[in-house]
Every structure is written in C-alpha cells, then in structure tokens.
Computed example of a mutant assay.
Amino acid sequence: MSDIFFKIDHSRTADEVIAQIESLILEGVLRSGDRLPGERELALKFDVSRPILRNALKELEARGLLISRHGDGTHVADVTGQIFSRPVMDLIISHSKAVADYLEYRREIEGLAAEYAARRVTSDDIVLLDRIMERMEAAHRNPDFEDEAKIDVEFHHAVGECAHNIVLMHTLRACYRLLSEGVAENRLLIFDHSGGRDALLDQHQAIHRAVIRRDPAAARKAAMDHIAYIEKSMTEAERSGEWQRIARLKLRQHGEPKLMPPAESADR
C-alpha cells in the first residue's frame, strides 16, 4: 500500500495531496475499505508537513471519499456500488426476471470489458491475472467451494480493471456487488448440473488465455460465452425446480394412491 504514494515535488500544498489521493481512488488503485498508511508514514511519503496532510485528509473526508474510524485509522469510503440501493439489490436477487436482465447486461458489458482488456493489458496486469488463475485452479482441485466463489468475483474484477477504462471499471464494480451477493447461489445451481463446476473453470481459463494473448475477439467471445452458459444453466435449474414444485403440489393434492380393501371371503 505505501508504495503507491509518491513525493510531491512542487508547492507541497493540501491540494497536491488531495489530487494524488483522488487520482488513486478514481483509477481504482485505492478501493473501498482500503486503509491508508498512518499519518506519520503518509506525510513522509508525500514529503509534506503533517498539518498539510491533515487538512488534505479532512477535505477528502468532507467530500465523502475517505472515512476516519476511531482507533482504526483512515479508510477509503464506500465509493462504488451506489447504483443499486440495498432494497433494490435484494429485489433483483430474489426475482427471476430481474436476475435474467442482470445476466443479459453482464453478458454484454463483460464482453466489452474482456475485449478492452485484451487490447490494453500490461505486463503487470498479466502477472496479476496469472496469480488469480493459479489460486482459482488450486481452489478447484481442493475442492474449496467458498474460496473458489470469492476468487470468481476477484477474477471478474481484475479483467474489468485490465480494460483501463475508468467509467467501465466503476460500473462493473457496482454490478459485481450483485455478483458477490449471488455468486454462491448461482454456483450451487450450476454445480447440480453434470460437469458444471469444471465448465466454469474452463470458461474462466478461456477468458484468461485470450486476454493474456491479447486477442480481443477471442476474449469478448469467451466472456460472453461464459455468461451465456450461466444464463442457460440458471434457466434449466429454474425449470427443474418448477417441475419439482408442481409434482410436490400434485402429491399433496391427491395424496398417495389408495389401496383397495381386500375382498371379503365368499365363505363368510
């Protein structure tokens, strides 16, 4: 964290400090919840006095970009994900039509993000993507469902960041709030399908390969195919669940077949 801040070479004012921290937040280097270094260390990094640093941090807090927690230092505020309020997020997750619309949106926007990522990926981006993929494959081998689900979200975040488009990156981060909420449930449904878990890994690997090979068309197709597979699997799971629900209602309505009473003996 401390290596992302640089010495201010000019007037050494609070405005200079503010501009640098704002840029780091805007570019996605500093994320919601990240803790800034302590005041002494940060002042040394910027090469400014502590009063100047305090004024800068106070202004950034007033703008809603930073938040101070008593006894826990200064953190980046929750600056992403405000497109959907908590009640709207709950509604989207719990209604199948909204989930379908969400996946349709993701299919298009992730295709675009993967295409841009393949065009703009840097050597450092590739190192990051390689590390995430190695962790995903390790979690898959274990198997570690919870860890694999978290890495799933992290992978999609990373591809979005490799696109190097500020608006696209923050839009995706807001979108992935829903993914974080629903990814476990989605995976459970897909895992019920034969080969579903392996298919998801294959799809992530295909996106990874296309991006690091800098193949925009293949990256876009791999990302869109991935979401299309999720859409198809979710639809099939929903239909299967509906069939099961109807069968259960019929059983409750009509009950078990009644056995005919044994015929009375003719000798009686």
Rank of each mutant, 00 (worst) to 15 (best):
R50D: 15
R220V: 06
A139H: 04
R69Y: 15
R69T: 07
H10Q: 15
R40I: 02
L44R: 00
G195C: 06
A98R: 10
L200E: 13
H170V: 04
E154N: 06
G255H: 09
V159P: 06
I83S: 12
I212A: 08
E22S: 09
N142W: 13
A184H: 11
K58W: 10
F46V: 03
E104D: 05
A43R: 00
E236D: 03
V99L: 02
R197W: 13
A138F: 02
L112C: 04
L103H: 10
V76I: 03
Y176R: 06
K45R: 15
T80A: 09
G73I: 05
R209I: 12
A263D: 12
R239W: 13
A228G: 14
L188S: 13
D90K: 01
D202S: 06
I8S: 02
D101E: 05
R177A: 08
L178T: 08
Q244V: 13
D90A: 08
V76A: 04
S2K: 13
R197A: 14
H156P: 02
I207W: 07
I4A: 11
P87W: 09
P87A: 08
T235F: 00
V183P: 00
A199R: 05
L251A: 15
G111P: 01
L57R: 12
E61Q: 09
L129G: 00
D202Y: 09
S23K: 11
P143I: 01
P143F: 06
P262K: 15
S49Q: 02
S94C: 05
P216F: 10
L189D: 04
L24T: 09
F145W: 11
L44M: 07
V79M: 10
I151C: 03
I151S: 01
W243Q: 15
R141H: 14
R187W: 04
G71K: 00
Y229K: 00
Q20K: 05
D90I: 05
E236P: 02
G195N: 07
R209K: 06
L30V: 03
L128E: 00
M260G: 14
R141W: 12
Q205K: 07
P143D: 15
E61V: 03
K232P: 10
D125V: 00
D215M: 08
L53I: 01
E137I: 07
S23W: 05
I151V: 09
I4W: 10
L168R: 02
G73W: 08
D202K: 08
A118P: 03
V183M: 02
H157M: 04
G160P: 00
T122C: 07
V79W: 11
V153K: 11
I227K: 01
D144W: 11
L128R: 01
G71V: 02
A228I: 08
I21F: 13
D78Y: 12
K97V: 13
L42G: 10
L179P: 02
F155G: 08
P261D: 06
S94Q: 06
E115T: 01
S194R: 15
A56V: 01
R86G: 04
D147F: 11
R86D: 04
E61H: 06
A217H: 10
D192C: 09
R35Q: 11
E22R: 08
A223Y: 10
E264W: 14
K258V: 14
I25D: 02
I151T: 07
A237R: 12
L91I: 03
V79A: 12
A263V: 09
S2Y: 14
Q203E: 08
S194T: 11
